[in-house]
């Protein structure tokens, strides 16, 4: 196996080296120059902790009754509705809020908050629930035994259990009966340098996605400027998703 590990996609690596070398204007060892192009990480390079993907959601811009982000998520990830809302998966949902004291209302999309200290990862007995180096919290369905303890532990009810057989899945979003799943930040898109489907679908531009660790990213600049909060910030989980206007 060792040998195979080493020559994985050699031709691709060579191609990348050559083409990036042209861009970089010189031949550099792989791994040194690749970070320069932050978004377009090469397909054969592992994710690193230098990046932390995150999101800022402005509930002031989010329209009540609009669920374009929810629909986009369902289409992108192939979350077919079976007609039973209690058992259907919902990776992102629209929540309406009304302040009990003041009567002020707000509307916002709630998705996996991609905590830096995720309770779902802590409680998972097999390690199926895990956090990628770049902060994206995922379920490795290959080793998920379907115990649902992560669903008990999540403060945001962000996780769903697949209650029925699934067929015709998207090749980039495998999902099947008996495992737990949740928002992946559209990891397959992020790995290509694109934004999650919900962010792209939001016409109000209420959702901004980016690298929280890159001070130059649009997200980081916004986060420095505007006042934003974490949902259940009292739990001190250091969330990847922050909100404005609540």
């Amino acid at each position: 196996m060792e040998q195979n590990d080493n020559n994985i996609d050699q031709y691709r690596r060579r191609f990348l080296e050559r083409s990036t070398a042209v861009l970089a204007g010189g031949v550099l060892a792989p791994g040194v120059f690749l970070h320069a192009i932050a978004q377009a990480r090469p397909v054969d390079e592992a994710v690193s902790g230098k990046v932390r993907w995150g999101m800022l959601i402005d509930s002031n811009k989010c329209k009540t009754g609009c669920d374009k982000c929810v629909k986009a998520c369902e289409t992108e990830n192939g979350l077919n509705r079976t007609g039973n809302p209690l058992t259907d998966a919902q990776w992102i949902r629209k929540v309406s809020l009304k302040d009990k004291q003041t009567g002020r209302t707000a509307s916002l999309p709630l998705l996996c908050q991609h905590c830096a200290e995720p309770p779902c990862v802590d409680v998972c007995p097999t390690g199926a629930s895990f956090k990628r180096a770049d902060g994206i919290v995922l379920v490795d369905k290959h080793i998920c035994i379907g115990c649902r303890y992560c669903m008990m532990a999540c403060p945001y009810k962000a996780r769903s259990f697949v209650h029925e057989d699934v067929t015709d899945q998207k090749s980039y979003a495998p999902r099947g009966k008996g495992t737990v799943e949740s928002c992946t930040f559209c990891v397959h898109r992020v790995d290509k340098g694109e934004s999650p489907a919900c962010v792209s679908a939001c016409e109000e531009k209420a959702m901004v996605f980016g690298d929280m660790n890159d001070p130059q990213s649009e997200l980081s600049q916004l986060l420095r400027e505007v006042q934003s909060t974490e949902i259940r910030g009292d739990l001190a989980l250091n969330l990847g998703v922050r909100y404005q206007g609540i």
Partner: peptide, 27 residues
């Protein structure tokens, strides 16, 4: 099965999305 298993963990945990041993390409 070894190739697919290895690629599975690489892609799942490290985000390495090379196509050579990916199940999608097999299919």
């Amino acid at each position: 099965m070894e190739f697919i298993l290895h690629q599975r963990d690489e892609t799942m945990h490290k985000g390495i999305r090379t196509s050579k041993h990916s199940l999608k390409e097999c299919i």
